[in-house]
Design a protein around this nucleic acid. Sequence first.
DNA 1: ATGGTTGTGTTACAA
Length: 255
Amino acid sequence: MKIATWNVNSIRARLPRVTEWLDEFSPDIALLQEIKTVNEGFPSTEFESRGYNLVVHGQKSYNGVAILSKFPIEDALCGLPGDDGDEQARYIEAFTGGVRVATIYLPNGNPCPGEKFDYKLGWMDRLIARTREVLSWEEAVVFGGDYNVIPADEDCYDPMAWADDALTQPESRSRLRTILNMGLTDAIRVDHTGPYYSYWDYKAGAWQKDNGVRIDHLLLSPQAADRLVQTGIDRAPRAREKPSDHTPVWCELGE
DNA sequence: ATGGTTGTGTTACAA
């Protein structure tokens, strides 16, 4: 079973890129972020016609996440628990194909310090609490998404250039480590070492120069990690016309 | 060199 995560940076602007990727790669489960539309604007029929079931948690203009699955989807939870006043659509959790998955669009947090950085850290504290709850069920779980955290300097083409960015701050990194230290596996780290980027800025020819960072992650519960067969980062969609600034990150789980 | 680009939706804001 192939599970992929991809920040598409607007599902409507990216529809040709996303549908050709689905046709080529054929993920069983796709975890999407930054769909940038309300549910009514989501091009559902394009995915249903390809055999996917959907859960969409949209928002006007910003954020928004979705799960596509070739299996029936149960137990869908839209919105990260822990703050009833939080209007931002950044989290869906659901059970499908015998695994639990989450699609996560963690707040960027820039500029920092500031209100946006405080929101990011508060959101991460809620994610820590939710992860602890889900892990207590001892299921195979894949928490995938745009975490907006560069885990270590080796995940960044130029750590000095990102030293003041919210994505590298000790407060962001330590919260990600708290999640990993609960026993989750960073899937890409299993069979790759060194820089392995998932995002390249649109500006200043970052893609052409491979000035990338690794911020899109698949974090696996022990029961999911035991089934891990292979992982990868598919650079092909980033090289095409009108690309997202992120590219898909995937893992394959066996029986 | 304090730049550069993309998307949404309006001429600003977020990334």
